[in-house]
Design a protein around this nucleic acid. Structure first.
Lengths: 163, 163
DNA sequence: GGTACTCACTTTCTTCAAGCAAGTGCCGCA
DNA sequence: TGCGGCACTTGCTTGAAGAAAGTGAGTACC
C-alpha cells in the first residue's frame, strides 16, 4: 500500500490486514458496495468522500482485489460499477465486529438507535460478528441485512458475485 | 478525533467505530497492551512506531478511554504504564476478524505460518472472531492466547483490569 | 555535588495525503 | 453543435507521518 509504510510482507496477519484495512475509508466504501451502491457517484454521495480520495481508494481496492471494476449497461449508456470479490465480501465480520464494539463503547448520538444485523435465513438478529448467534450458521454477506431504524431502512447486503 | 473529519456523532455505528479504529496504529498498540507490553518503550520497540506518533496515539486512546495511564512501581523507580479498559479489551473480536481475513486473503510472506488463536478454557483453536468455535463460549481477552510459530511464542492476552 | 543514564516524551524538518474546488474528457441526447 | 451527466484528474492549502534530535524528570554512581 503506497499510502503509508508497507506492511504487506509482515509475518503477523493482524498487521498484514491493517495494511489494507487501516484506513477509515476502505471499510466504508466496501460497505456501500455490499449494500448495492456500486457506482462512483453513489458511493461518493452516500459516504461523503471527496472525488480525489474515492478515486484513489477505488484504484487501490481493485489492485488489492477486494473490488472488480465492470462495465454495466444502464438505462441509456454504459456505466462502470464496482463489485465485491470474495475477499471483499469476507470483510463482513470485520464490519460487524466494529459495529458491535461501537454500539457498546461509543456514546449514542442524538437521534441514534440500535442497528440490528439480521440473519435472513433464520430471521433472527445476530449479536456475533461471523456466526449467527441464533442458529449458529456462518454469516454470509448475501444472507444478512442491516436494520437501521434512524433511516427507517432495512438494507440487504448483496455479497460477492461470481468471479 | 482530531486527526481527520470527526465521525463521533455519526448515527451509523460502523462509522462511529471507524472514527477511533480507522487508523493503522490504534489496533496494533491495543494488541501490544493486551499482550502485556504496557510501557511506552515496549510498545514503541515492538511495533516500530515513531515516538511522536506513539505519544499522540496514547493520548488519544486515554482520552477515548480505551486505555488508562497508571503509575507502576518498577525495580527501582516509578514508571508509567498503559492498561486496557473494558472498551479496550473488547477490541479483541475485531483483531481476530482482521487476522482471520488477512490469513485468508493476503499472501503469506516468506517464512510466515498460520497464527492460531487458542481459547485457553477449552484448549482448542477457534476460527470465529468472538465465540469459541469449539465450545461456543464467548471469547474474552484474558482467556485467549495467540500462537505465533514464526516467533516460537505463545502469547497470552491479559485483558482488561479492574476499573 | 556533578555527571551520566534511562524513560517518556516534545520539537523540528521534510515529505506526502486529505480535503476542497475547479477543470478535463468522454459519452449520449436534443 | 451545444449541453449535461459521469468519472475522474489537477492544483492548492493544511496538517499528519516519519526520522532525528532535543528536553526534562528521576535515579545511580563517584
Amino acid at each position: 500500500m503506497p499510502l503509508r509504510s508497507d506492511w504487506s510482507e509482515e509475518l503477523c496477519p493482524v498487521r498484514r490486514g491493517l495494511d489494507v484495512l487501516g484506513d477509515p475509508w476502505i471499510l466504508l466504501i466496501m460497505r456501500e458496495v455490499l449494500h448495492g451502491r456500486n457506482r462512483f457517484e453513489e458511493i461518493r454521495d452516500s459516504i461523503g468522500i471527496s472525488d480525489a480520495v474515492l478515486s484513489r481508494r477505488l484504484r487501490l481496492l481493485v489492485d488489492e482485489e477486494l473490488l472488480r471494476k465492470v462495465e454495466y449497461r444502464g438505462d441509456r449508456r454504459t456505466h462502470h460499477e464496482y463489485v465485491a470479490t470474495e475477499a471483499g465480501a469476507d470483510l463482513l465480520p470485520i464490519m460487524h465486529a466494529v459495529s458491535i464494539w461501537a454500539e457498546k463503547h461509543t456514546p449514542m448520538p442524538e437521534g441514534g438507535t440500535h442497528m440490528a444485523v439480521i440473519h435472513e435465513s433464520c430471521g433472527a438478529e445476530t449479536r456475533s460478528a461471523d456466526t449467527c448467534s441464533e442458529c449458529g450458521d456462518e454469516l454470509r454477506a448475501d444472507d444478512v441485512s442491516w436494520d437501521k431504524p434512524w433511516k427507517r431502512a432495512r438494507e440487504r447486503l448483496v455479497g460477492a458475485p461470481t468471479l
